[in-house]
C-alpha cells in the first residue's frame, strides 16, 4: 500500500509537466484562432518554419543519444570521478562532465558521497560546469549558430570550468583551513 502511494506520487509531477504545457499551448492557439484567425495561421506557419530548422538535427540528436546510452553508462562515468587528484583528476572530472547525460539530480548523491570522502570541491565544480556541454545536442546547436560559434563557446566553457573550479577550491579551502594559533 505504501509502495503504491509512493509510486503514484512519483508519477504526478511527470503528468503535470507533460500535460499542462501542451494544454496551455492548445488553449492559446484556440483563443488566437477565434480572435484573429489570420494572425494565428501566421503563428502556426512561423512555428512550422522553426520545426523545419530543427527537424534534421533532431534525427542526429536521437542517434547521438543512442551512441551515448550504448557506450557510456553513468556508472562507468561515475568511476572516473574523485579517484585521482592533480591535473589527471581535473581532466577526468571535465571529461566525465562532458560525456555525462541525464538529469543532474541523479548525480547529487554520488557527488555528496565523493565530497564526504574527500574529493576536491574544485573537481566537483569542474564536473558540474562541464555538464553544460551537451554532446548529443550539438547538431541542433550547430544548425542554429554554426560550427565556429559552437566550437568557440565549447572551448571557452571548458576553460571557464577550470577557472571556476580553481576559484571554488580557493574559497572552500579558506573555510577548511584551521585557525592560526594566537
Amino acid at each position: 500500500m505504501k509502495a503504491k502511494s509512493a509510486h503514484q506520487s512519483s508519477i504526478a509531477p511527470y503528468l503535470k509537466s507533460a500535460v499542462i504545457l501542451p494544454i496551455l499551448t492548445a488553449l492559446l492557439y484556440t483563443l488566437l484562432f477565434m480572435a484573429t484567425p489570420e494572425k494565428a495561421l501566421a503563428a502556426l506557419k512561423s512555428s512550422l518554419n522553426i520545426f523545419q530548422n530543427v527537424f534534421f538535427p533532431l534525427g542526429l540528436v536521437l542517434l547521438l543519444l543512442f551512441l551515448l546510452n550504448a557506450f557510456l553508462k553513468p556508472a562507468k562515468i561515475a568511476k572516473l570521478l574523485g579517484k585521482t587528484s592533480g591535473p589527471r583528476g581535473i581532466a577526468l572530472s571535465a571529461a566525465a562532465g562532458i560525456i555525462s547525460a541525464g538529469p543532474v539530480y541523479a548525480w547529487y548523491p554520488l557527488l555528496k558521497d565523493l565530497k564526504e570522502k574527500g574529493a576536491a570541491d574544485s573537481s566537483i565544480a569542474i564536473f558540474l560546469y562541464n555538464r553544460a556541454i551537451k554532446i548529443f545536442l550539438l547538431p541542433v546547436m550547430i544548425a542554429y549558430f554554426g560550427l565556429f560559434f559552437v566550437a568557440l563557446l565549447t572551448v571557452l566553457m571548458i576553460l571557464a570550468s577550470l577557472l571556476i573550479g580553481y576559484c571554488i577550491g580557493l574559497f572552500t579551502k579558506m573555510d577548511d583551513a584551521p585557525a592560526a594559533p594566537r
Binding site: T25, A40, S46, S47, L48, F51, V54
Partner: peptide, 9 residues
C-alpha cells in the same frame, strides 16, 4: 516552438 511561433507574430 508553437509558443515561439505565436510570440513571433
Amino acid at each position: 516552438i508553437f509558443l515561439l511561433g505565436a510570440f513571433n507574430v
